[in-house]
Computed example of a mutant assay.
Amino acid sequence: MKNLLRLSFAVIFTALVGCATPQPPVPLDQQFYTAEDKKVGLMLEAPEAPDLALEGNIGLLDYAIIAAATSSLSEHFEKQNLNEFLAVAEELSSSLEKDGLTVVRLEVPEEAPKLAKFKDPDSKDQTYYASRDHRGLVAEHGVDYLLKLKATRAGLARPYYGFVPTDDPRAVFDVHGELIDLSTNELLWYANISQSAYATGEWDEGPNFPGLTNTYYVVMNKARQDVVNALARKSDIDNIALNEVEGNAAEEESSAAESEE
């Protein structure tokens, strides 16, 4: 009976959690770039290595069968790296410091800090706040903003029904990011970035799986670039777009001239 009660409570709790309103995306507040002599604490978190994520309706016994069938693929991807994503720290530091901000690299704590819940002072407006109160980090780290980036999924994903795969594996790279104003706990930026792609051609080419491996590095690079673009100053993005347009126009003029000749 006690086990049944525990199971019932777990089901009810899961249903209640599932009904919670998810935090919508928050585009970067460009007022962030008007701050002078401000410090940004940058915290970058990533798994030790890429892995194979299993999706779908999978039983406990199915996992053992899948693990045996995918061992060579899993072992190969565990040897790959996340350097392309980790490089985003230096790229963002350079970009933010160019705009007059100071960047301080913060270590990811071994245990998540126990932060109090934060209540939105006005839930009816379009200003969003972090669910936990981060304001105490000002005194702890001496920073004005906290930029947290976490690679929540890196490697491969494949759906199953039981132990039977229902689709080919695909390369995936997901990043969760948030920028918090530590004076108010306001979210200046909040995003869940996701990139995925199937390998072109045959994927099951062990032991090196070149198609899937190359695709993994492509999607990781795209996810990193999405982070950089999301945090770029709007004028910088406009300049990049303008340069691309001018470059394309110059190429078209050159091609037209060659055709006339």
Rank of each mutant, 00 (worst) to 15 (best):
93 S>R: 15
88 V>F: 00
67 A>G: 13
95 S>N: 12
67 A>V: 07
100 G>S: 10
61 L>F: 06
82 L>G: 02
105 R>K: 15
77 F>K: 00
62 D>C: 05
110 E>D: 14
98 K>Q: 15
87 A>K: 07
107 E>H: 10
96 L>W: 15
64 A>Y: 06
77 F>V: 07
59 G>T: 03
97 E>V: 05
65 I>F: 03
79 K>I: 10
97 E>T: 13
72 S>W: 07
103 V>I: 04
63 Y>S: 11
105 R>Y: 14
66 I>C: 01
98 K>M: 14
73 L>I: 01
107 E>K: 11
102 T>R: 02
63 Y>T: 08
80 Q>L: 15
86 L>Y: 05
91 E>K: 08
94 S>G: 11
88 V>I: 09
88 V>E: 03
71 S>Q: 15
79 K>L: 06
110 E>F: 12
65 I>M: 03
95 S>K: 04
82 L>T: 09
97 E>G: 10
106 L>P: 00
105 R>P: 08
71 S>V: 07
87 A>N: 01
76 H>L: 12
80 Q>Y: 03
95 S>I: 11
106 L>I: 07
69 A>M: 12
66 I>N: 00
100 G>C: 01
113 P>G: 13
96 L>C: 09
86 L>S: 04
100 G>H: 03
110 E>Y: 11
94 S>K: 13
87 A>T: 05
88 V>H: 00
112 A>M: 10
111 E>Y: 09
93 S>M: 00
100 G>D: 11
71 S>N: 11
77 F>T: 01
97 E>I: 10
104 V>K: 00
98 K>H: 15
72 S>H: 11
87 A>M: 02
101 L>F: 10
62 D>L: 02
60 L>A: 12
63 Y>N: 06
97 E>R: 11
76 H>Y: 13
62 D>Q: 04
105 R>S: 15
91 E>A: 15
97 E>F: 06
